[in-house]
Design a protein around this nucleic acid. Structure first.
Lengths: 126, 126
DNA sequence: GTATTAAATGATATATAATCTCATTAGAAC
DNA sequence: GTTCTAATGAGATTATATATCATTTAATAC
């Protein structure tokens, strides 16, 4: 695996964005300062970073989001504005070390998603 | 809300499919026997059934899936073939009744997704 | 039963997310 | 510097889902 400028930039950017960005959000941010960078590269590199375990990929409505915080935690998703925030995972302490066997599956990871509406959207709707 | 033939058929079909189908899977199944039914209708009706709480919508990689089992439970997703199965939710007994307040959010629902590889795919890969 | 009316439908267009193709570029090793 | 091949980027393509809008039809009134 080669250490390209693009990979470094994408890594830096996703680490500095604290809003659980989608691949496209990372691309848009990066594209401002480096117009040469390609969308496909951002998608590819983020995918690869997730496979290496350097970032966490979370499947949420409308798009996959990336999170550089690797410590186990849950997420809350606002169904109105799409905002994502970290939450404590109530099951953390009991979470087994993966992989684990269950129902014939080899379980490799666990995601906990809370859905609801954030404070801002609540006040805007009312 | 009107009681249309299409709505009845979609309701029946999703209840009879035990593989956590996507909207498209329901459409394809239904379209075999009733070629007149439209894709948009299936998407719309499933969405509406989910909003009414008559089916559960689960956001998973590649597509949203529907589940007619309303009792709280988690899901396991095979990253190879996309198969989805029900799992016990270890946190069931502690799960609060929604909505609940948390971090300024009004939490309305909770989803637990396990990711891994199913027995069939394991033996095919090896 | 028929007439009325608005909600639902379905064909199609559009939007969005994500991946694929492939010629070109540029790390890494020498 | 040269070589080699992985990575990139422009653009096409696929897949998922939603929006548009003329037409149909369920529900109600009569």
């Amino acid at each position: 695996m080669r250490n390209t400028i693009q990979r470094t930039l994408i890594c830096q950017t996703v680490t500095r964005m604290h809003n659980h960005p989608s691949a496209d959000m990372v691309y848009e941010r990066l594209h401002r300062d480096y117009p040469g960078i390609g969308r496909a590269t951002v998608y590819r590199v983020l995918q690869s970073l997730a496979q290496q375990g350097l970032v966490r990929k979370v499947c949420l409505p409308s798009a996959d989001r990336y999170d550089f915080t690797l410590y186990p935690h849950a997420h809350i998703f606002c169904r109105v504005c799409g905002r994502v925030e970290d939450m404590p995972d109530p099951d953390d302490r009991r979470t087994p070390t993966f992989p684990t066997e269950q129902n014939g599956f080899t379980v490799e990871a666990r995601d906990v998603i809370y859905r609801g509406i954030c404070a801002d959207c609540k006040s805007n709707v009312l």
